[in-house]
């Protein structure tokens, strides 16, 4: 009788422990995956939840897109190999994709870091030593002017339809939130890029005078990697006019 009772108790306690540890493990996993700090209200939590779900959906869609692109590439290669007349077409295609920013690129160039100035040390108007969206497109413009072939800000590729806009204390680039410090990478002739950005009374010089923490380095080795453009090009209103 006593033994039977003991078995019963141990089974019940085992089931209990199972529920407890399973719950804790699931909770830890959920908190780890969501990477969000604890929300204040449940309504906020629901919004966070939907953001989290959309992110997952986006990731899944992006993965399938990448897989499909790889398949497309291999098919193109196959065609180019079997048919000589197509090989010129493939190089042309590559050229266009290069222009659209559809490839991850690598090369030498410059790396610029723009950091907000330390407000505890600097005196004056606080807006002066904060990096603004306008500063970013001035720098991008200067880089383009100096013949940069590819530019990225915090791993967001700058392409033809990239917009840089101010949204409160962060900046939107390609509709993705990007915050300070800004790391701007550009591929091109390093000396030319560096020279045109650091001329006296150039924009970076002005920024530095305002109190912004500016760092610019020439990278002579081909170590700068600029990611490809994540978005898509859409033409809803424009048609080709012959």
């Amino acid at each position: 009788m006593d033994k039977k009772n003991k078995i019963k108790i141990s089974i019940l306690l085992g089931i209990m422990c199972f529920f407890l540890t399973a719950g804790i493990a699931i909770q830890i996993n959920t908190v780890k995956k969501s990477t969000i700090t604890v929300g204040k209200t449940l309504a906020e939590n629901e919004l966070r939840d939907s953001v989290f779900r959309w992110k997952q959906k986006y990731e899944n869609a992006y993965k399938t897109l990448e897989a499909n692109e790889k398949e497309l590439d291999s098919l193109r290669e196959e065609i180019a190999n079997t048919d000589q007349s197509h090989s010129s077409l493939t190089t042309q295609l590559e050229q266009y994709n290069l222009l659209l920013g559809n490839y991850e690129l690598r090369g030498k160039g410059v790396e610029i870091t723009l950091k907000d100035g330390d407000s505890s040390i600097l005196k004056g108007y606080a807006s002066d030593f904060i990096v603004h969206d306008a500063d970013l497109y001035e720098v991008v413009n200067a880089l383009k002017n100096a013949g940069a072939e590819a530019i990225s800000i915090n791993d967001q590729r700058i392409v033809t339809n990239t917009a840089i806009t101010c949204v409160g204390n962060t900046v939107l680039i390609n509709n993705e939130k990007v915050g300070a410090p800004f790391v701007i990478k550009a591929i091109g002739l390093p000396a030319k890029l560096y020279g045109s950005l650091t001329i006296p009374y150039g924009y970076l010089k002005l920024l530095e005078d305002d109190g912004v923490d500016v760092k610019i380095t020439q990278v002579e080795k081909e170590t700068i990697v600029i990611p490809k453009y994540n978005g898509i090009y859409k033409f809803n209103f424009a048609t080709i006019h012959e």
Partner: peptide, 14 residues
């Protein structure tokens, strides 16, 4: 019983 429950729970939960 307790240890078995904990281990199984942790595995299934993770």
């Amino acid at each position: 019983g307790i240890i078995l429950g904990c281990v199984i729970g942790a595995i299934i939960g993770s």
